[in-house]
Structure formats: C-alpha cells, structure tokens
C-alpha cells in the first residue's frame, strides 16, 4: 500500500491523526505537535547524513536560523503565519547553501567540527545583537486559531494541525525527492564518490544541493519549534538540541526514513520519562535538570555501540538474512556502479 500509493497513504495517515487529535487531552496533543516537528528535523538530518554522507553535529544551529528568520518576519513585517514558515525555509536554505559550499569540500571530522563550532557559537552571536532580543529572545505569536474552526478549538490543537500538516507535506515531498534521480545520486556519492563521479554525477553540486534542502527542512522545523514554544531565544536552541537530533537520527537509523517516527517519539518521551523518574525520587531539582541530557547522550552512545545502523535497519538486515536462508531474498534498493571490470555496490 505504502509502496504503491504513497499519496493515499499519507492522506489516510493525516486523517487518522486528525481523528486522534480530537480525542486526546491537551498535553498529549501538544507533545504530538512536537513529535511532528522532530520528524521534520530528524528527516532533514537523515537526508544529509544517511543519504549524502555529510555529518552535521550542529543541526540545532540551522533550526535556530529558521526560528529567528520566522520571528523577525512576523515582528517587523507582520507577515501572515504561513509566510513566516516560507521565509524560514528560504532563509535557512540560503544559509545552508553557503555552508554547504564550504562543506562539500570537507570530509568527516572537518565537517563535524565546523558544524559543531557553529552550534556552539551561534547562540552567543544571537546574544550580542539587539535585533535578536538577547538572552530573553523574541516572542513568536501566531495568533488564535481561525474562528471558523469553532469555539472549542484550542491553541494546542491548532499547533498540532500546523506542525503535522507541515510534517506530512515535507515527508511526502522528501520521499519523492529521495526516490528521484537526486536521491540516487546522493546515495551513489555517499557510497563511493569516485565511482559516482565516473558515472557522470557532479559530486560537489549534489552535496551542496543536499545541504541546501536539508537546511531548508531544518529551518521549517526551527520555525515550528518557535511557534509551539511561542518564543525564539538562544535557550530554545541549546547545544543539547543538536545532540538530541543526532540521537534521534541514529535511533531512527541514518540510512532510512522509515524509522523517523521512532526517533521523534523517543525524543519527546525522554523529558517526560525523566520527569516521571524525578518525581518518583522526590522531585529533586538536579535530577530534573540533568536526567534528560544524560538519557539522550547515554542512548546515543548505546545505540552507536549496540545497533550502529539503527534498530529498524537492524531488523531489516535480520529479516533479509532469514529470507535468504529460506526462499527469495528481500532486500531494499541496492545501487551498483560498474566501471570497466570493477564494481562498486552498496550490497555487502
């Protein structure tokens, strides 16, 4: 079903979400909105790392660019809500293209260090210019939901609708892009850039394009995050956010979009679990402030150690192994590049 009619599947999924959102209580709807945002952010990181093979440890910085772009458009030009998201996507994509041009020439550790430096330094830059509102930040007010939706339509449900509409559209589009020529080119570049270049793929251009699209999506997620918190400030995009997104991407499995939901739900659940544990042990302040960070980072290390390719991919691999010993093998799309007598393949 999903393979044949993705559009229908996405619409049905959206409708189910709509039905669910009418039945749940406020707090869960609010968390649901955050899950939608993390879905976009993690997908953008997966696109970059898993598909085009570029590491970004500072995706939080890109989210921050999107958030600030949206809030500045809202405050200074009084832009309508949908337009602030468009502004966020465009501004971050431009920033991402600039960064991508530098990034396309860098390999692993250099790129990781550069993006991490950006995530560390960007909040301090935001603090120093009054346009960005300093430590307090700028408040992001999208107004009340339209009156036509009825009297008892709450603000949180409005957030939920906006973030999930954005997430579904983004994921549908992303799925389309990744199955297109570009997606195949990116995977070829990731697997073996020399072979890809020999096959006529412009490596640099493809890397910059991947960075640009990934940044645009991250910007959208940043604007949405600012919306649900009603605030855009350095504290909304801390270094921990970059860590969390990396954790989410690794948990989702960096090579597949299929696990995005798992990563997003876990990221939203972690602070709640931490709070529950803290309350169990007398609600101490130190536990509440430190446990989420410990859980996120600990989970990151454990995942990389135990299931480096993510639980979903691990399951696929195991099933493929079983199937191979049985009858026909079930394997995901494979890419093979042949040059002369040499063969490069994503197959093991």
């Amino acid at each position: 079903m999903l393979k044949k009619h993705p559009l229908i599947t996405f619409i049905i999924f959206g409708f189910i979400l709509f039905l669910i959102s009418n039945r749940l209580d406020e707090l869960i709807v609010y968390h649901g909105a955050t899950v939608g945002i993390y879905v976009i952010a993690i997908a953008s990181l997966i696109l970059l790392t898993g598909y085009s093979g570029q590491v970004s440890l500072g995706h939080g910085a890109l989210l921050a660019i999107g958030g600030y772009a949206a809030v500045l458009a809202r405050i200074h030009y009084n832009a309508p809500v949908w337009l602030t998201f468009v502004v966020a996507v465009l501004a971050t994509a431009v920033g991402g293209a600039l960064l991508g041009m530098a990034a396309a020439r860098l390999s692993g550790p250099y790129l990781a260090g550069t993006t991490l430096a950006l995530a560390i330094g960007l909040p301090s830059i935001a603090n120093q210019f009054s346009v960005f509102g300093g430590e307090q930040g700028l408040s992001f007010d999208i107004g009340f939901p339209p009156a036509s939706l009825g009297e008892d339509f709450t603000q949180y449900k409005w957030y939920f609708w906006i973030s999930w509409s954005a997430a579904l559209i983004a994921m549908y589009w992303l799925r389309y892009v990744l199955h297109s020529r570009y997606g195949r080119s990116w995977r070829a570049v990731r697997s073996n850039d020399v072979a890809a270049e020999l096959a006529g793929i412009h490596v640099g251009r493809n890397k910059v394009l991947a960075f640009t699209i990934s940044a645009g999506l991250a910007g959208l997620a940043g604007a949405l995050l600012g919306m649900t918190i009603s605030l855009v400030s350095p504290g909304v995009f801390p270094l921990l956010l970059s860590f969390s997104l990396a954790t989410g991407a690794v948990l989702a499995g960096v090579t597949t979009l299929g696990g995005v939901m798992i990563g997003a739900v876990i990221l939203v659940a972690i602070p709640e679990i931490a709070l529950a544990i803290a309350n169990r042990y007398g609600g101490s302040e130190t536990i509440i402030t430190n446990l989420p960070g410990l859980l996120v980072s600990g989970l990151l290390i454990l995942t990389v150690l135990l299931v480096p390719n993510g639980p979903v991919e691990q399951m696929h691999a195991r099933r493929a192994k079983h199937a191979k010993s049985g009858k026909a093998s079930h394997s995901p799309v494979e890419l093979t590049v042949r040059v002369g007598s040499k063969t490069w393949s994503t197959k093991k």
Binding site: T49, G50, G53, V55, L57, G108, P109, A112, L116, R190, S191, L240, F243, A246, T247, V250, V254, T255, N290, L291, G293, L294, V296, S297, G298, L300, I301, V304, L305, P308, N309, K348
Partner: peptide, 23 residues
C-alpha cells in the same frame, strides 16, 4: 562497516560529551 562507520566514532564522542556534562 556500513554507512555508519565513518560517523559512528564522531557521534560517540558527542554522546560522551553530553554524558560528562550531565554527570
């Protein structure tokens, strides 16, 4: 092996940074 090989150590040190901060 696999596509994670190039980034796994980097991500692990990042996780370690987070764990140390929390502790």
């Amino acid at each position: 092996q696999g596509p994670i090989a190039a980034i796994a150590p980097i991500i692990a040190t990042l996780g370690l940074l987070g764990v140390i901060h929390a502790v």
